[in-house]
Design a protein around this nucleic acid. Structure first.
Length: 568
RNA sequence: CGGGGUGUAGCGCAGUUGGUUAGCGCGCAUGGUUUGGGACCAUGAGGUCCCCAGUUCGAGUCUGGGCACCCCGACCA
């Protein structure tokens, strides 16, 4: 490709809206251009990278028996009603009617379509197992797109779906997917963290996320530097420290007594008022779940993890209760607890021991001392619903855990029977019995991966492409194109390299040295080859890797083979 | 969806208490001088000042409403 005719100009200054490194470089290097919030067009350079990434994904999927298919983005709403997601998912699912007033949606993922395909095709266990995948546009009307290609409303995803006879088959296949994903990242030059993830309402039996550690990430992961345990904070198990200090133990229980606490509402205020650590108080957080009031009771030093709460409640359909709803059940916001309340489901975090706590009295300006569980209140559910915190210790080895921000690059899931059951995807077993097929789903964002590669591979001059995904391998620079010999040699090199199978971006423009070298650094191809009067006087051209400050002179007649050796 | 910010030429920005023909740098076009790290000179093209309504003799500037984009948070199969 000649730079003089390449569609898309590099920018000296990035548009003011770009804040994170990959976003700025994607715009400056002319990889993509915005059309609307979270919607981008790819220019030739960016699209070549996308195609390289896709090729790696296809290769890894094919290696583990994946078969590429292609499913529509335009979906009849009927399918989504069958699984209930038409009603369960919020406005991020775009819904509309066609001209005949039939309900349609734009697919944000393809479990419904693929399960529908499966139930139509699948008859016998002899057809199992299989895994199909596609690289397809996904539409999600995200509340807040951000970070350029990090979070988009229209994006590309490689999504795969596996179908097995039984859990055992899925369990045996899952590690192959897991390894294929790791291969994809490493082949793209990325170091990603592989973490245990929340299976959420999917009801699955296993799930991993692949996280790029980055300050601009929107997920929080828990990491143990000692044993390597890593998990999304939504799923993370951590050992809650035991309470320290003096507490009335269960065998020495004193009667509950009221304490006047005028205006003291928050845990922070309580610790100051009583001069006691936060762990000696009971925090009660009220939720409204499907019309019921739920009180989540947790130690004062901990916060509620709503993903874990969803699992405990077996429903994600809840929100913070309003003060009115709390008052209706007899609670007094700021001084509330489950003690003495009726018609409230109580979820107790397993951090709450049998020793004495101070809790709300459901009476204005009043708390209660010597509250003991289970003497003074009962729990409907006891579970771990606490958010992991820095400073807690690893559930596997006891070492102190760290929290880190990250970007979710991929998510693999043992789906189980949720979709196949809802949609009746069944097959006949060897015994002639109808059996529901078990599914897995495996997603990885293509655009986001491109952004991640840049996040992890750039310097202050520009992108540093890993060879595997670089839009071209060689940036051929002709300095002083008015010099007929320079132009002639560069031109010949360009043609010869292409004939030899190298991907060459040829800067044939009549620009000054600084402009050309700065563009080469910005675009970031692995190898730069320079032809100038100065190199020709030595019968040579100059070769410089993007990653190095040093260059080497190579004789003209060896140039093609030398470069080919570096980039093929 | 809550909070904050920004909308003036392709990009980055300035524009005074409301006042004539809306500027600057970069980029772009033409000509010339240059040519190993974003060169220089000259000439030139390019604007619904986000939109609508209002106040005013007069609005980029003031008022009201709307829209778009960015950031933080909530949300996120």
């Amino acid at each position: 490709m000649r730079l003089s005719t390449l569609f898309g100009k590099t920018l000296r200054q990035p548009p003011a809206e770009a804040e994170i490194a990959s976003h700025r470089l994607i715009l400056r290097a002319a990889l993509a251009r915005p059309l609307a919030a979270g919607v981008y067009s790819y220019l030739p350079l960016g699209w070549r990278v996308i195609r390289k990434i896709e090729a790696i994904m296809r290769d890894e999927m094919d290696k583990i028996g994946g078969q590429e298919i292609h499913m529509p983005v335009l979906n009849p709403a009927e399918l989504w009603k069958e699984t209930g997601r038409y009603f369960a998912i919020g406005p991020e699912l775009i819904r509309f009617e066609d001209r005949a007033e039939r309900d349609f949606v734009l697919a944000m993922t393809h479990e419904e379509v693929v399960t529908d395909l499966a139930r139509r095709e699948l008859r016998s266990y002899r057809q199992l197992p299989f895994m199909v995948y596609q690289i397809q546009t996904k539409i999600r009307d995200e509340a807040r797109p951000r970070g350029g290609l990090i979070r988009m409303r229209e994006f590309l995803m490689k999504d795969g779906y596996s179908f097995h006879e039984d859990q055992k088959g899925l369990d045996e296949y899952y590690p192959l997917i897991h390894q294929a994903y790791k291969n994809i990242y490493s082949r793209c030059g990325l170091q990603v963290l592989d973490v245990e993830a929340d299976t959420g309402m999917m009801g699955g039996t296993g799930s991993h996320e692949f996280i790029l550690l980055s300050e601009s990430g929107e997920d929080t992961v828990v990491i143990c530097r000692n044993c390597g345990y890593a998990a999304n904070v939504e799923a993370a198990k951590a050992l809650k420290s035991d309470r320290v200090g003096q507490h009335a133990p269960p065998e020495a229980m004193k009667p509950v007594e009221e304490a006047s606490t005028p205006g003291v509402k928050t845990i922070q205020q309580l610790t100051e008022f009583f001069s006691l650590p936060a762990q000696d108080f009971l925090k009660s957080v009220f939720y409204s779940a499907g019309g019921d009031l739920v009180a989540v009771v947790i130690r004062g030093d901990l916060d509620v993890n709503e993903a874990k709460l969803a699992r405990a409640l077996q429903s994600a359909d809840f929100r913070f209760a309003t003060d009115v709803e709390i008052a209706k059940a007899g609670g007094v916001p700021g001084f509330a607890s489950p003690i003495g309340l009726k018609n409230v489901r109580v979820v107790l975090d397993d951090s709450v021991d049998a020793d004495a706590f101070i809790a709300g009295a459901n009476k204005p300006d009043t708390h209660l001392r010597n509250v003991h569980y289970p003497r003074d209140f009962k729990a409907d559910i006891v579970a771990d619903v606490a958010l992991a915190q820095a400073g807690q210790t690893c559930c596997a080895c006891g070492h102190e855990i760290e929290l880190s921000r990250g970007v979710e690059l991929g998510h693999i899931f043992k789906l189980g029977y949720k979709y196949s059951e809802a949609m009746g995807a069944k097959f006949l077993s060897p015994e002639g019995k109808e059996v529901i097929v078990i599914m897995g789903c495996y997603g990885i964002g293509v655009d986001r991966l491109l952004a991640a590669i840049i996040e992890q591979n750039h310097d202050d001059k520009g992108i540093i492409w890993p060879r595997s995904v670089a839009p071209f391998q060689v940036h051929l620079v002709a300095l002083g194109v008015e010099d007929a010999e320079v132009a002639g040699v560069a031109e010949k090199l360009y043609l010869d390299l292409q004939a030899r199978g190298c991907e060459v971006l040829y800067d044939d423009r009549a620009e000054t040295t600084g402009v050309k070298f700065n563009d080469a650094d910005l675009i970031g191809l692995p190898l730069r080859a320079t032809v100038s009067r100065r190199t020709l006087d030595k019968g040579s051209i100059e070769i410089k890797p993007r990653t190095s400050q040093d260059f080497t002179l190579v004789k003209l007649d060896e140039a093609v083979e030398h470069i080919a050796g570096e980039c093929l």
